[in-house]
Design a protein around this nucleic acid. Structure first.
Lengths: 153, 153
DNA sequence: TCCATTTTAATGCAGATGCATCTATAATGA
DNA sequence: TCATTATAGATGCATCTGCATTAAAATGGA
């Protein structure tokens, strides 16, 4: 892979530094807002939201892994905590006896409803209010999407 | 604060999601490259680099705190590890007997030199090669900078 | 079929982080 | 001056993450 031996330009290095820093600033701000409001942390929202999107059929841990980009052991323990808290139901998978199927419980659904207004306000406060026009929002969205892609340009 | 009660637009929510994800993808990629090369993690580089920039006079932990945006207790322990590893020298601060002054040791300088080529390659691989033109780099840099600012727009 | 390989999930252990608290010193100000 | 308050840094404890390993089940040939 030739490109991997190239050195980054000054501009790229700056983008890297700012990506780390902007994310950290925004994330710690949002997490702090959640904590202040007395609701669970972001990771819980992520799991619950994926399960809600998945609907009736629920999701298997291995599917969560792919969607949240978390390691297998982290999913395993995160789900543990959510099960203990009563927000997620875990039952054996009918088609694969190694696996399990996760679904939302009623309290899980309730947590999502409780968290969203807080979360949305935090996103607006720590991200939305910092960016300018809709056009800037679109531009940033597009550029960030490229960063996530696996292919080079 | 009125803006804090506004709800984020669809676009802003997407930016938030992509900011988290793009950063996670890039960061885990870079950390993995460092590990593969057998060099210390990013956090070590950050501290050592700040100390290098600070030069002769070194830095106090409280200054590192501001520059790296880490909590006081995290700085305290991170520095501990670097001192134990022999990369950082810690001596009492002459002007404030509560404090201390941190400077690079020779092996600390060496670690920086060893890490940079690996780190630079990783940045190019996981960030640089994903973005297109220099203009895109500039645009992304500018937009990310806005996110870090404390003021709203 | 049978065996090697791969996939799914859990877990023990070490390392890192968040939170609250503690000690020592410095700064403030009556 | 002395008492109050603020700041610098360390640390105990709980939680969370990373890493390696393990167990069980599924898959894919020969």
């Amino acid at each position: 892979m030739v490109a991997s031996r190239e050195l980054p330009s000054e501009g790229v290095i700056k983008v890297w530094a700012r990506l780390l820093r902007a994310q950290r600033v925004a994330l710690t701000g949002v997490e702090a807002d959640l904590k202040t409001a007395g609701v669970p942390p972001l990771a819980w929202y992520d799991v619950l939201f994926e399960l809600k999107k998945a609907g009736e059929g629920g999701l298997r841990p291995v599917e969560l892994e792919g969607r949240l980009l978390l390691e297998q052991h982290n999913i395993s323990r995160l789900v543990d905590r959510l099960v203990v808290a009563g927000h997620v139901h875990r039952r054996p998978c009918p088609t694969d006896r190694r696996g399990q199927v996760l679904t939302l419980t009623e309290t899980g659904r309730k947590i999502l409803r409780t968290m969203w207004p807080v979360y949305a306000g935090a996103i607006q406060r720590h991200v939305g209010s910092k960016i300018g026009t809709d056009e800037d929002v679109r531009a940033l969205s597009l550029l960030l999407e490229r960063l996530m892609s696996t292919r080079e340009r």
